[in-house]
Design a protein around this nucleic acid. Structure first.
Lengths: 188, 188, 188, 188
DNA sequence: CATGAATGAGACTTCATTCAT
DNA sequence: AATGAATGAAGTCTCATTCAT
């Protein structure tokens, strides 16, 4: 109501600045002062929005996970759906490199920070479930080239995606190859 | 027999201590003083061995890459060779978790440090070549389930291994699944 | 009336403390911690005012050069004006020994620090010009004992003053002697 | 007797290296390790020759003062003798700049180090006496342009020389001007 | 004579955080 | 909401010196 008051997007601006800074320098070089400066406020003012550094990082975490929204084309057959999904990710990997770098850094941080780990795990539940569905349906439909284990396949896909974040330039052929291995059509 | 001379490899001890510290806290929390303390020397003495922090990290880098020695059973058929190789890695992943955590951290650091990047890249050349040989021979012998692309398959394997470092507990089924996808024998 | 706000010029206090410290120990023994302690603040707070040691020294430099204000009695004849001016300096030399010691140290530092050199050179321009005027007018009025060269005489005066900073106790007779040499009236 | 033993000029080499280092960086930047390195020995070996840093500096002090040997042409008349002497110094000032820089630094150090002060004072006694003789003889012979005070004139000459060390490029005209002021011949 | 290892004191600087205004 | 001053802990690195070999 007051018109002096809230700068509603100060928080957002800070989060975005932090996001970019982490993408650029990783957590190792992540300092608060430059973030405040980037938004044009004093560094102590930053503490009004995020009392502690960890709070800001948590906000960045939510921002990052929320940004990753791969669509699942449920109208497609399992194999095609997988190919479409991984293709989208491969595309995003070069289109939004910052996002994947930040997610990568967050995965590392999760090793030592329980709360980060939990958030990421929760966030990935949806993804895991969707992938599981793909493989289950495929198994039912005998769409895969081999007798695959659903859980292992899910983890395989996730590991591949996470691993390829280090080399976005080969992402596309890699996921293509992986899909090729799953699909029945090709092969002797 | 004097007290001064009887530490034949303070350097090694320092490297090992640094190695463990990085495995435990990552580079973010990597401080020199605790390293010196762990070895039982004054922190300024550390600078006698490693003039700069970067020098110590470089030594850790060499220590880590040198430690990773997967045997390649050239006597085996390509498919079996791949399975054996990845199996070894999966085993190592849980047997020497520190090593893989450090390698993981180094991959991250390579994003911003050219010299780290170069060392890692050089170190991986041998691995890449050995994997390429496996796939090439397999192609000649029509050992694979599909018409695969050698380069992409190499990158796929590497990405999977690197990605699975985040979850060593699923490493074994994941590599098993990946081998299953490559191998011809199974399949519906 | 709060306790925090009532130090209107911490900066000035720091500059003065640094000034005295340099006078006492020279640049060789110039350390930041004692400066902060002398003002009663934490040594990291000093960096709030002067981010770097060089910044503090630069401030001291300005403080010192700004403090040296010899009046030029333009109402006097050239010879008398010179005598008055040098007399003032000789007096100041024993009245404010710290100032001249610091200026002396700064001259030394200027040998290796370009920015110090420039500041000093700029600051001395006014002095050089005023001295040149004295000698030029004296030449016109045939006030000097000999055919003197204006530029050389200016440099002679400056060199003498700078040299006598090492022995303030003889400053007065020395400048007196120098004036005597210039002036016409005396002589056998 | 042994032929393995003494490297007779190690000491000299160290002194010379220290001399040059001080000329280049002043006492502020004077470190022992580079000196040892310049001579090609370990820095702890340096302590065999000079147990302490002060010892090395003392040796440099003697080296420097010993090197300054202005000849006094006693065969010349006082005025000519002074001109000759100062001319020699002016020449040396540009021919051996290092020497005068080191002497300059030592004068500064003497302000805080009694032993340096004493050595310098002793060393200058000869110079002072020779200058005094010049002026005394000149007074007797009525060679000077004015009734000068011997002691003050000695200090004036010394101050001028010390002051002009900061600007060797104007040394020659400055001493020329000073001699001109003393000499009788010119003037109205 | 020469060395390398070791030390301890101390240097400058950075940073997240708090507090009064 | 916003600021600037202040803090204290900690960080990397340097240097003269000593000691055993």
């Amino acid at each position: 109501m007051g018109r002096v008051a809230e700068q509603p997007d100060r928080r957002q601006a800070l989060i975005r600045a932090a996001f970019s800074a982490i993408a650029e320098n990783g957590f190792e070089g992540f300092r608060l002062r430059p973030i405040a400066a980037a938004v044009g406020i004093d560094h102590s003012t930053l503490h009004h929005y995020f009392p502690t550094k960890a709070d800001l990082i948590a906000a960045v975490l939510h921002h990052a996970t929320g940004q990753l929204e791969g669509t699942m084309r449920m109208d497609l057959e399992p194999a095609a759906r997988l190919r479409h999904h991984l293709g989208e990710i491969a595309t995003a990997l070069t289109a939004q490199p910052e996002l994947f770098i930040v997610l990568d850094e967050l995965d590392r941080r999760a090793r030592r920070d329980q709360s980060t780990a939990t958030t990421i795990r929760d966030d990935e539940q949806g993804w895991r479930a969707a992938l599981a569905t793909i493989f289950e349906e495929g198994v039912e439909q005998r769409a895969w080239s081999v007798d695959l284990d659903v859980d292992s396949s899910v983890e395989l896909v996730i590991a591949t995606i996470k691993g390829v974040r280090l080399r976005p330039e080969v992402a596309e052929p890699v996921v293509e190859q992986l899909c090729g291995l799953f699909s029945k059509e090709s092969g002797s």
